[in-house]
Design a binder for these strands. Structure first.
Lengths: 118, 118
DNA sequence: TCCATACTGAACCATATAGTTCAGTGTCTA
DNA sequence: TAGACACTGAACTATATGGTTCAGTATGGA
């Protein structure tokens, strides 16, 4: 795969594409948590939960710290800034398209429509 | 996988997690394009490009219409609103954590620090 | 009518993801 | 010091992803 964009956006959007991981972020927003407590909450094995946490950690969205036998997870310092910026920048493109679509619709009303065919 | 969140967020964040697909959205923001022109631009086979476009289409980020032998791709009506909202809502959680971190750092300066160990 | 163009679909490959089990290792705590 | 607890890592499974090639089908133009 040829790289065009930011590999960190790759990692964070991929991390956010799983509902369990979005739930973990939600949960950590309410307070730090151990792997065990997260695994309980999301009904998953410790090993499975650890993998999710690692994905979030690689994306910089979560940091963990092991004290004694307990690994505590908390929200990281990435703060979703770059992601918010990408999305906001591109929402403008989408909105510009809407205006263009309005024109097309008026045109279609005049001359009869094509199909989204095949 | 037990589902907790929105399956449409799953699809759109997954779609955005690939730099080529983010590039396609970028490109379509500058104007509609055929599969062939996108494949050229991103140096990829037609088949490969078609798959990317299908991922974007399933996520609602792109719509396509075939006229004659040409399939034209344009930005869809999803507009990234839900994605922007999720991210904005959660940025607040991250920022709240920062303040908490500041407290922790001051505490650590007083009593000597732990390690992010193991 | 014939050829080039534009796409489509099936099949394949390598790698990643989402999860599991099982067998550890290290740390409390009674 | 024995057991319980919290995690870790390897190995395995099933499925998805990102890409390819190859063999079509359908359309448009000379």
């Amino acid at each position: 795969m040829v790289q065009y964009g930011s590999p960190s956006l790759d990692l964070s959007f991929a991390a956010l594409s799983d509902a369990t991981r979005r739930g973990i972020i939600d949960q950590l927003g309410r307070g730090d948590a151990s792997i065990t407590s997260l695994a309980d909450k999301f009904q998953m094995t410790l090993t499975g939960m650890k993998k999710h946490v690692q994905v979030l950690e690689r994306a910089g969205l979560v940091v963990t710290q092991k004290v004694g036998r307990v690994r505590t997870c908390k929200l990281g310092k990435r703060s979703l800034k770059a992601e918010a910026e990408w999305i906001e920048a591109h929402r403008k493109l989408f909105e510009a398209r809407f205006e263009a679509l309005d024109e097309i619709i008026s045109e279609m009303k005049q001359e009869g429509s094509d199909e989204t065919a095949n």
